[in-house]
Amino acid sequence: GLKTLHLGSCVITTNLQGIRSGFSEIRDSVQAKDEIIDIRILRKTQFLQGTKPADQCCLLHHILRLYLDRVFKNYQPPDHHIFRKVSRLANSLLTIKKDLRLCHAHMSCPCGEEAKEKYSQILSHFEELPPQAAAVKALGELDILLRWMEEV
């Protein structure tokens, strides 16, 4: 069912289980396309859990924006089945991002130094790769992002 994410003073409810179910259906085929297994974009040092609660909302907000603006847009699904699954995942993350934007509007999603530093590290890992390869890798790492959210 639904899970409540406490991100500092920003509290949102989301269906992580549904998102994970959708991802698990395409996980092996998406990850198999990621041939650069020496590089990981979402690394433990940028863990959401290890981030100061007040900064968690901002960090997650920026990560979701990266996924929506540069992962789902650049990802070229190999077939219609994957396309439908990926579209549903994108819509789910868009919903979460909208909720975080509401928190932002209500001043409960501040961007401290820690959030900025961690996000810039993630972005630099992402930009080490060509856009298409980065999109494939980031999509394959959605299970890491989901676990970060589950453990918040």
């Binding site: 092996d28 990850q31 198999a32 299970d143 676990r147």
Partner: peptide, 8 residues
């Protein structure tokens, strides 16, 4: 192998 996640 595929990417192996002990948890999953």
């Amino acid at each position: 192998t595929n990417r192996f996640s002990p948890l999953q």
